[in-house]
Each structure stands twice: as C-alpha cells, then as structure tokens.
Write a protein that binds this DNA or RNA. Structure first.
Length: 729
DNA sequence: ATAGACATTCTTTTT
DNA sequence: GAATGTCTAT
C-alpha cells in the first residue's frame, strides 16, 4: 500500500485516496482538473488499484470510461502491473465499446437483432447516399455530408428526429430524412456510432429494472478525458451513476479538442450542479516538460478566454530553447526533419522517442517520402487505418452478409466486386423489387434467382451466382473457428484471386492475410469465436492494427492522435496560417480557440526538445500554396526560441528584402506580400461588385497570382489579382 | 448492360 | 491527389 502511494504529491494523493462517501453518507464525486503531464493516468490507475486493495470496491464493481481504445488498454495494463489480482470483471473501455457490450447483452430489450452491425463514418455516408437515392432526394439540395453531420449532431445531443427543432422548411426536411434514416437502419439491423450511445441511453431510461441492475452493480465510475465528452455521453453517465454511485471525472479544459464533434466543456460546469458536494482537485505540477516548453505552452493558451483557470509549473530546469525552422518548401521542411532525426540518433535518442506531428493527415505524405528515401524507419498512426482499407472493407462486407443478410450496405458493396457482371441497372432493378416487396436487397436477390429456377452449377452467373456464392459461404463456415471463416471467405469470394491478378495488388493481398491473423489474435485475446463480435471490434477499433510494429521507429501522427502521449523530442510541422490554424476553423465560432488548444496539446507532448517548423510554399491537393507563418508562433515569446538550420531556409535569389533571420525569431518580418505587391493575408479590401472583404489566402506569383477573399456579403471567392479590380479598404 | 477511360469535385481533426 | 461520378466503346 505505502508502495502504491509513495511519490505522489499532495494533490495526487488526495485524488487517489478520496473516500467514496461523504461523511453524510452521500456519494463523494470528484472533478479533477489535470493539466498536461500532471500525472493524470497515474492518478486514475493508482486510484483503481488503491480502491481494490483497500477493499472499498471489487473489480466487478468498477467502470472506467476512456476516450480511445489505446487509453483503455494502457489503463488495464498499468492496473494489472500494480495488483496481483486479475482485472477481469472490470468494465474498462470507450463509451462506444461499453455501449456495444451492453447492447449485445440486451439486444432484445433494445429492439436490435442479435447480430446487429456497426457502421463507421464511411459506411454511414454510403448508407445516406443510398437512402437519398432511393427517396429521389436531390443531393445538391441535401448534401450527404451535411445530412450526416445533422444526424450525428442531433444524436449527440440526445435528440431523435421527432424532437429536433425545425425553425425552417429546410431543417424540417432534414429532420424527415433523419427519421427515414433511422427507419432504414432498423430495417437493416445496423447502427452508427452515435446510435450505440443513444440506444443505450434510451434503453436505460425506459427499462428501470435494467438501469437499477447496473446502478447497483457499479460502485464507482471513473471517466478519463472528461472535457471531450458530449452532451449525450454526459447524460448517459449521469443516468448510469444514478444517485448512489460516485463519479470520478478527470479532464483538462485546455485540451478540449473535439468540440467539432459535439464535445462540450460545459459538462465540466454542469458537473458542479449535478454532483452536489463534489470535490474539485487541481493537478498543476507538470512532470513531463522542461521549463521553456511549458512556458511556451502557457503563453499560447493564455490567449484563450473562457478558461477554467490553471497554471502549469515544473520543478525541472528551463532546458534548451525551442528550435524554430523556416523552410522554403514542404520538401525542405521534411528534409530538415530527416537531418535532425539522424543527428538525434547519433546523440542516442531512440527513434521511437521522437514524434513528428502535423495538423492534418494529408501532410504525412511529403514526410513519409523523405523518410523513406532516407531509410529511416517510421510508423504512421491514423490516416488510412487497417480496417478502413478498401480490400479489408470488402472482406468485412462479405462477412457481414454472412452474419446478417439484411445488411443492404454490405450487399451493395460486394455484389459486383470482384466484377461478376452485375451492373448499375441490375442493382436498380433489385432495389425497386426490394422496395416494392418491403424486403431486404438480399431477399430480393434470392427471390429473383429462385424464380429463374435451378440451373446446373456451371451455368449460374450474375445475381444467381452471387446468391449461390453467399449461401455456399454461409453453409461452409458454420461452426468453423473465426480465422478459418475469414480465410474461407476471402478465398471463396474471389478477392484473393482478384488482387493476385492486379499489378499493385501485393500489399492488398498481405492485408487480407493480415485480416486472418487479426481474427486469430481477436479469438486469443477475447476468447470469443463470434463473428458479430469480431465485426464490432473491426468497426470500433479501426486503427492501431498496423502491419509493422514493435521495431524502433519514428512516430508520425496528427496532433489529435498525439493527445495523451509524450516523447523525448517533438516536431510540430506545418505551422502556417490556413493549415494550423486550419482555414476551416476560421469560419466556425470558437474555431480559433479550439485550434489554439490543439497547439497547446502539440507543444506539451515534448519532454526535452521541441522543434517548430513551417514552409513558405506547400504542395497541397495538387496545387502549390503560399502561406504565412502561423499566428501561434507569434504568441510564443521570442526569447524562448532560436532559429536553426541555415537561417531563412533555402537561399532565395535576388530577394534581399527578406532578411535572413538570426537570433530571436520575429515573425512580424516574415509576412511576405503576395507576388511582391501591396497585398497580404489579413488585409481588408474593397471589390466593385462583391463589396468589402478580407484576404484570407493567396497562391501563385506574377500573372497567375490569385487571392482568396472572404467578403462580408458574397462569401468566399478566389480572384485573379490581374483582373479583379481590388482596392485596399 | 458493363467495364474501363475520362472528368470533376473536394479536400480537418475521430469513436 | 484521391475518390467519386460521367461518358464511351465494347
């Protein structure tokens, strides 16, 4: 015990040992404001171990909710390391994972088929497109993406279609489509991510007995990354805790970076109201980063208003200054990373302790290219995840169809892949027949092939061949171990043969084989041999299962996926206006503040050394764009940084106007005008027809130069400088 | 009616 | 650059 608690500072100690009941007998909840690197995970895991060891709760009575699967696994690993007992029986997982578990156990009460399938974002979008088409809705008027975020947004507020407020005609139509969407989901036996939560919430609200069962089971609920919970998750939590279960919520409002997905730091304020007598504990001592890094992070986040208020400090020394590199091009920036990583290796810093961060996934390409050419091993997190790859999606669709014939989405995906002569026309006919008879596409296909009568084996093609194929698959895989089911399906479907015949198919073949291994690993880990459970796993844990792992490799990831991690050295790349902060964020209220929190997260990942870099020109979406340094660079005090790597990037001929930067960094001097004219980003302008606006971006030089202007009335427009009659305003 | 070539569109972050 | 959607030759 003393060993468990040794080395905790007073605040950490209080958080770990906080009793489950107030002296009055009321449950004792807590809100822990845990700054970056303040030992948050340690507090959570130690508290779990402490409560179990002192006999205050049994593992059976504990629930711990995390935001990512990675965090859930880490928590389990660390608790097991502290305690000799098994952590089995503890409910540890993401909101979605736990809801899935609950719904599988009570699918009947929740009104779901036993083998209900989970749609990821991609599946959902395809589903919506299919729905709009079947309803003959104009995609121009109701863009699928927009409808998708409308539906998810509503669900994340806990609202069904009938409860959505519709002040105007368009919103009313959207709500109707939302209702139609839900209806179709029910028909097909599929649920989206938000539905997992909403369904569970409704189930617990409706079924008092069931809710009571879980409330009395869980003696304590712990929540990680509380600032990232949305309204629905908060309600879910409140409902599950009831009046008797204390809640231990850990979060940091400065690291709230999922507001775009409906997360609301408001939950932290409501906590106060909903959990009377709760304890507020602040963890402000940072054990991760050296002083200069922390000072830079603090300086940046200070520019945000509406903070709960918290200031990180460290007992460590200042450390070295931050290193700033300005590159002429993105390629040069990548080369800089390569050179520095090599130097770090020579200094004895292992690659796996070095992370390269960027704002959006598209930026990884240039970096990967440079690293690959240099022969530096690297690992990319996120991006295209294993279970999101085309060939894997195809294989999973076959498996889904085997598990649940009503899954129209799965059928559409593979009915003609590999090509078997079933085109758009045939599919349309099937869809009409299905709609007319009120049955699934599979049923329509089955009836159609039945009507044609039994032909000899060899003569079956088209729809009949497909129906026969799936039925044969279903028959052949009954009772087989999961990996063999997968193996059979990828073979019998013709996927293997198809990719063998493709020139670039080698990697896809490897991935398909990897899927068989993944099924094997799944059976081993979970001791389940259930196809539906494996498919749920694939949807909920799309990533992390990368082909290469284990070896010492440089870590590449978005800032979002870096949250919760730490490294000896961190590169924050692409610090340019329009990229970081992202231009999309400038249009959303509160967007820049969220980007700034993102920057805060990025900076606080580093322990010892922090590189910041930006490029003047960058190839993005096939076009060269010219950018200016990020505003966040200006928010870092100059004395904390030093410019490195050959002054002002690549030598730029005959442009003495740009002074080589030496010594303290002064970003003000680095806002180059577009094509040497008087125009620059941020400038107010006047256009004869569009009126007043602000330049938000520009690209090209000379006669090709264009500027993007945000007009107060006419919206966002690209204008050729040569022709547009722009005047400064 | 289908497959493959061609053109067009949209580009953030994630369970 | 990718991932759609559209057109054209089979």
């Amino acid at each position: 015990m003393s060993q468990l608690l040794s080395g905790l500072n007073p605040q950490q100690h209080e958080a770990v040992t906080l009793p489950l009941r107030q002296p009055s007998g009321e449950p004792q909840s807590a809100l822990v404001l845990a700054g970056a690197g303040s030992g948050k995970t340690r507090v959570l895991t130690t508290r779990i171990a402490y409560l179990i060891q002192t006999g205050q709760v049994s593992p059976h009575g504990l629930m711990a909710v995390t935001f990512t699967n990675k965090a859930a696994r880490e928590m389990l690993t660390r608790v097991s390391a502290m305690l000799p007992i098994t952590t089995r029986g503890m409910w540890v997982g993401t909101f979605h994972g736990l809801c899935n578990r609950l719904l599988r156990a009570h699918h009947r009460e929740a009104g779901l088929p036993p083998l209900f399938q989970i749609m990821d974002g991609q599946d959902q979008l395809a589903f919506i497109k299919r729905l709009l088409k079947s309803l003959h809705v104009d995609e121009e008027k109701f863009p699928p993406r927009q409808l998708q975020s409308f539906i998810n947004g509503a669900k994340e507020q806990g609202l069904r279609a009938c409860a959505v407020e519709a002040p105007d005609e368009h919103t009313r139509r959207m709500a109707e489509l939302y209702a139609a969407y839900d209806e179709q989901c029910n028909k097909e036996g599929v649920v989206d991510f938000a539905e997992l939560l909403l369904r569970t919430f409704e189930l617990l609200s409706r079924d008092g007995l069931l809710a009571e069962h879980y409330r009395s089971r869980f003696a304590h609920i712990l929540v990680d990354e509380f600032q990232d919970t949305n309204r629905l998750q908060y309600l879910w939590l409140k409902h599950l805790a009831g009046r008797q279960t204390p809640v231990f919520a850990v979060g940091d409002d400065d690291q709230s970076i999922y507001a775009f997905r409906g997360a609301s730091a408001e939950n932290m304020r409501d906590f106060e109201r909903d959990y009377p007598g709760y304890r507020l504990i602040k963890l402000e001592q940072n054990y991760r980063s050296v002083g200069n890094i922390l000072a830079a992070a603090n300086a940046v986040i200070k520019h945000n208003r509406h903070r709960l208020g918290k200031n990180l400090w460290t007992a460590d020394g200042e450390g070295e200054p931050l290193r700033l590199y300005q590159a002429a091009t993105d390629g040069e920036e990548a080369q800089f990373v390569v050179d520095e990583v090599r130097a770090l290796e020579r200094e004895g810093v292992p690659c796996s302790e070095v992370a390269v961060l960027y704002r959006s996934n598209a930026q990884s390409r240039v970096l990967e290219h440079a690293l690959f050419s240099a022969g530096i091993p690297y690992r990319v997190y996120g991006g295209l995840r294993f279970f999101e790859r085309q060939e894997i999606k195809h294989a999973l669709a076959y498996l889904r169809l085997v598990a649940n014939p009503a899954d129209d989405g799965a059928l559409v995906r593979v009915i003609n892949f590999p090509a078997r002569g079933i085109g758009a026309r045939t599919l349309e006919q099937l869809q009409d027949q299905a709609a007319a008879a009120g049955v699934s596409l599979w049923e329509a296909a089955r009836r159609r092939s039945e009507a044609r009568g039994q032909k000899p084996e060899g003569a079956r093609k088209g729809v009949e061949g497909f129906v026969a194929l799936i039925e044969a698959m279903r028959a052949a895989t009954v009772g087989l171990p999961l990996p063999e089911v997968v193996q059979h399906v990828i073979e019998a479907s013709g996927l293997l043969a198809h990719y063998r015949g493709e020139r670039e198919g080698q990697e896809r073949l490897e991935n398909l084989n990897e899927l068989v291994n993944a099924a094997g690993a799944f059976v081993q880990e979970t001791e389940e041999n259930d196809l539906a459970a494996f498919l749920a796993h694939a949807a909920l844990e799309a990533g992390e299962h990368q082909a290469v792992s284990g070896e010492d490799a440089l870590q590449l990831m978005t800032v979002h996926s870096a949250k919760g991690l730490e490294f000896h050295t961190v590169f924050v790349t692409g610090l340019e206006e329009g990229l970081f902060p992202h231009e999309q964020s400038l249009l959303t209220p509160g967007g820049v503040e969220e980007e700034r929190r993102l920057m805060y997260v990025a900076l606080t990942r580093a322990r010892q050394r922090l590189y910041l870099s930006f490029a003047h020109s960058r190839l993005l979406h096939g076009q060269t764009r010219y950018n200016v340094p990020s505003r966040f660079l200006q928010e870092i005090p100059a004395e904390l940084m030093k410019a490195v790597g050959g002054g002002a990037g690549a030598p730029r001929r005959a442009e003495p106007a740009t002074a080589p930067s030496r010594g303290p960094f002064r970003p003000q001097g680095l806002f180059p005008p577009a094509c040497g004219s008087e125009w620059h980003v941020g400038q107010s302008v006047l256009h004869p027809t569009f009126g007043r606006g602000v330049i938000v971006n520009y690209e090209g030089r000379g006669p090709d130069a264009r500027v993007q202007v945000r007009f107060s009335d006419a919206g966002l427009k690209w204008l050729m400088l040569e022709y547009a009659k722009l005047a400064p305003a």
